[in-house]
Design a protein around this nucleic acid. Structure first.
Length: 819
RNA sequence: GGGGUCGUAGUCCAAUGGCAGAGACACAGGUCUUAGGAACCUGACAGUGUGGGUUCGAAUCCCACCGACCUCACCA
């Protein structure tokens, strides 16, 4: 038995043993009556080896999974790879190879690292989204969405990344730049496939109530903001010289009498249609100028308002007033109806525009603030309606109700709801993704590839053939593209775009429940057992992307009767980032820390312990503030305690005869660690384990010694609790205590309530909030006894001049006397 | 500008209305050791960003301000 603590030796020894034992397989048998738990980490993208960020997420997830294993749950803790995506394609172009080569080599590298890292995965359920037997079901699901009218093709302005040469979803454009590569996104007119996520906007918003307790507030807030539901009214304005009225959406129908002009998005068809001949030249010039602007320039709030008069007037339906119609790019063509009524007095954007172009400002809500026309500050707040005919004197809320009623009676408007959320653009003009299973037939139109012909696999393209050229590389594979129409058998062509890889990750958690299933994307019965995911762990960067899409998929599958829940992830934990020296790690800063190197130096357990102990899991940790060396030192201490306990005691000696003081510490620690792990305060749980280690050390050195059964009890509890964080050290300690592997299934220790009871408690006696005395009292002392005892204290009397005004008693811990 | 999170020893963090300190880093000293290291022990260091308020009592709840970070950003 080696006294020396060498993490690398322990790792080699136990990793092999665990692979033989395979202790983390999720049970499937009908006889398995353990309760189910589903623990899921966001699956990795295979870009090279695991990094520090992976080290943290998976360490955190593993604490939770291993705790459930110890508690006797039937735990599903799967692993797989999100293996479609651009980096593989770029690597393939560079190396004149196939993206699969790079992808699957990286997967193997990561898998090897995961095994060394000791995560409690059920490896038998491993999946890769780039495998045809996975993406086949993306296509199958696409067909179902298509049948339900939830997948459709439309033309329109889309976000185009000039660097990646593909379109992007709204969610993938961050501040006007491509979320992946940072290039400035431009707008292009293209016909693309969309998922109709907007049909689910209300449910995506309302169902958040189900997860409110389990998700971080900020993620809920981000999703709410992203969906951006607003309520207001649609109002129809007649346009002079046009037969049909134009509808605008407004959240402030109460200010309708304050509308002094009308604005249309310059890129909307309406603007061009209603522009008069004498204004045509100015409008065309303006539209061209706007089209040249990048999203970044266009969206800048600093930017001065621009626009042109279109030569026509709109008629305000409530007072018949003629107001000029302008085109201006602060009005977006794809929100609401692409046109607005402008109320400059009560909307800052309208006011900025009005002041620039000398348009009138009319106050219709008296807010008590200075005239916006004078100050340049719009007054969007509450107030009393003025200059508004029948609305005069009403509050904002009452005026909104009344005007909607009036508009509805006249047929000029109605209450309306709008969303910031747009439909999910899912076509990508790239290769390494799931082919969209549609065949375009000149006679039959869009024809889905019949289910029995799925999967539509990717043609074998590599190297230069994958270079971005603005159309999908698949278009060049003529043999692949040209097919006969499934309906009429005539010549037809395959759709050459691939799906956004967020489709792949929108349902992978369901596939894990029955990974090899061939009868559908997942076995409905298995998902009924395991789903929904009890705990999901991953980065905040997916707060609106992946999480919103997965929630959408789950709701569609619910409507299809394939799942019996409407929210996929009951609890969500977003781990913080691992940074170094105050900044995110990056090559250019030269502050990168390599996970593999850290493990080589300190060992897996010390690295995992350092990450868990650094602070609350959702906080960022700065590696420069941390000390894996100290973690290693602690693990040495802990293992020594377990070793000495193993050598000095015999299993089975009645523990009741052991040192009472240590036993109390042990049981207290078990009780506390249990609560701390359940409330996900893992850093504090580790601190408690450190205390237990010190207490055991003390008992060995200056108490009854290593032979005391209480030392064994402490060491055994320590081994099991440590197994959540540092599995190798725990396993070795458990072994030295004479128990067979795996410690992971040893069972969580139970605190004996009798040992949690304290014989006496220190009661603090305060006078006017200041501590004046401490009393040792029984924990079950009555309030009146405690009050009498406190008032009898000489130290207290010294601070009292007469009878106290008030005495607050919180037995048994505190008495506060108000003089 | 809207929304969100957060400010506690030199540092990372505990303390979920009740004694500001559990744990750790770094620092200083000691025991042991030929020495170095390791191991073990001991010690010093803050009154909670600022200002109000609620309360018998506030790091904790409320308001304002300062500062940091995240997020959305002309969504009518």
């Amino acid at each position: 038995m080696s006294e020396h603590y060498d993490p690398q030796t322990l790792q080699a020894k136990w990793q092999q043993r665990w692979e033989e034992l395979d202790p983390f397989r999720a049970g499937e048998g009908a006889t398995d009556d353990r309760p189910y738990k589903y623990m899921l980490d966001m699956f990795p993208y295979p870009s090279g080896d695991l990094h520090m960020g992976h080290g943290e997420v998976f360490a955190i997830g593993d604490v939770i999974a291993r705790y459930w294993f110890q508690r006797g749950y039937n735990v599903l803790h799967p692993i797989g790879w999100d293996s479609f995506g651009l980096p593989a394609e770029n690597a393939a172009i560079k190396r004149n190879a196939h993206p699969a080569e790079w992808t699957y080599a990286n997967i193997e590298t990561q898998a090897t690292s995961f095994r060394r890292y000791g995560i409690s995965f059920d490896w038998s359920r491993r999946l890769h989204t780039s495998d045809p037997d996975y993406y086949k079901w993306n296509q199958w699901l696409f067909n179902r969405f298509f049948e339900r009218g939830l997948a459709y093709r439309k033309g329109g302005l889309v976000n185009w990344c000039p660097s990646d040469q593909t379109v992007l979803a709204n969610e993938q454009v961050v501040a006007g730049r491509c979320e992946r590569c940072g290039a400035e996104v431009v707008r292009r007119e293209l016909t693309q496939w969309y998922f109709k996520i907007t049909d689910y906007a209300d449910r995506l918003l309302d169902d958040m109530a189900q997860v409110e307790a389990g998700w971080p507030d900020r993620v809920l807030a981000m999703q709410r903001n992203w969906i951006g539901r607003s309520t207001g009214a649609d109002v129809a304005f007649a346009i002079e010289g046009r037969d049909e009225p134009v509808t605008v959406y407004t959240t402030r129908p109460d200010t309708l009498y304050g509308a002094t002009f009308f604005v249309v998005a310059p890129d909307a068809a309406l603007a061009s249609e209603i522009c008069t001949p004498d204004r045509r030249e100015a409008f065309d010039a303006y539209r061209a100028e706007v089209a040249k602007l990048s999203d970044i320039e266009r969206m800048s709030t600093e930017k001065e308002k621009t626009g042109v008069f279109l030569g026509v007037h709109a008629i305000n339906p409530v007072n018949g007033e003629r107001i000029p119609v302008w085109a201006a790019d602060y009005v977006l063509s794809d929100y609401g109806h692409g046109a607005i009524m402008a109320v400059p007095a009560h909307d800052q954007r309208d006011l900025d525009f009005a002041r620039k172009f000398g348009l009138p400002v009319r106050v219709v809500v008296h807010t008590g603030l200075a005239d916006p026309g004078e100050t340049g500050e719009a007054t969007p707040g509450e107030g009393t309606l003025v200059n508004s005919g029948p609305l005069d004197g009403l509050s904002k809320v009452d005026a909104i109700a009344k005007i909607i009623e009036m508009l509805a009676a006249e047929g000029n408007g109605k209450a309306a709801v709008n969303y910031r959320l747009r439909d999910w653009l899912l076509s990508r003009q790239r290769f390494w993704g799931t082919p969209i299973p549609i065949i375009h037939c000149p006679d039959c139109g869009e024809v889905p590839v019949p289910d029995e012909q799925l999967p539509v696999t990717l043609p074998d393209l590599r190297g230069e053939a994958l270079a971005p050229k603005g159309v999908s590389p698949l278009a060049a594979a003529t043999d692949w593209v040209n097919v006969s129409c499934p309906k009429c058998d005539g010549p037809a062509k395959r759709d050459t775009d691939t799906m956004d890889t967020f489709v792949d990750s929108s349902w992978y958690f369901l596939r894990y429940c029955s990974p090899g299933y061939e009868g559908g994307p997942f076995d409905v019965e298995q998902v009924r057992k395991w789903g929904p995911v009890d705990q999901y762990v991953g980065g905040i960067e997916h707060a609106v992307l992946h999480l919103l899409y997965s929630r959408f998929f789950t709701k569609v599958l619910y409507d299809m009767g394939m799942v019996d829940f409407t929210e996929p992830f009951l609890r969500l934990l977003n781990q913080g980032q691992v940074i170094n020296m105050g900044k995110a790690m990056s090559k250019s800063l030269g502050n990168g820390v390599d996970l593999g190197e850290q493990i080589d130096t300190y060992g897996v357990d010390a690295v995992r312990l350092t990450m868990i102990f650094a602070g609350p899991p959702e906080d960022d940790m700065d590696w420069a503030d941390l000390s894996p060396g100290a973690s290693l030192k602690f693990l040495g201490r802990a293992l020594r305690v377990m070793t000495e306990a193993g050598a000095g005691t015999t299993s089975g000696v009645p523990v009741e005869s052991g040192d009472l003081a240590l036993r109390k510490v042990t049981h207290h620690t078990i009780d506390e660690v249990t609560k701390l792990v359940e409330s996900q305060r893992f850093n504090v749980a580790v601190a408690r384990m450190m205390e237990l280690t010190s207490a055991a050390r003390k008992t060995i050195d200056s108490g009854p010694g290593a032979g005391d059964p209480a030392v064994r009890e402490a060491a055994e509890a320590l081994a099991v609790m440590l197994s959540l964080v540092t599995p190798y050290t725990a396993e070795e300690g458990w072994h030295r205590l004479g128990h067979p592997a795996p410690v992971a299934l040893a069972g969580w220790p139970t605190a004996d309530p009798a040992l949690l009871v304290q014989e006496s408690v220190t009661c603090v006696v305060q006078v006017a909030g200041k501590v004046r005395d401490r009393l040792e009292v029984a924990p079950d002392i009555s309030e009146s006894d405690l009050q009498a005892l406190a008032l009898a204290s000489d130290k207290v009397k010294g601070h009292l001049d007469g009878p106290p005004r008030k005495v607050i008693v919180r037995a048994p811990k505190l008495v506060n006397i108000v003089p």
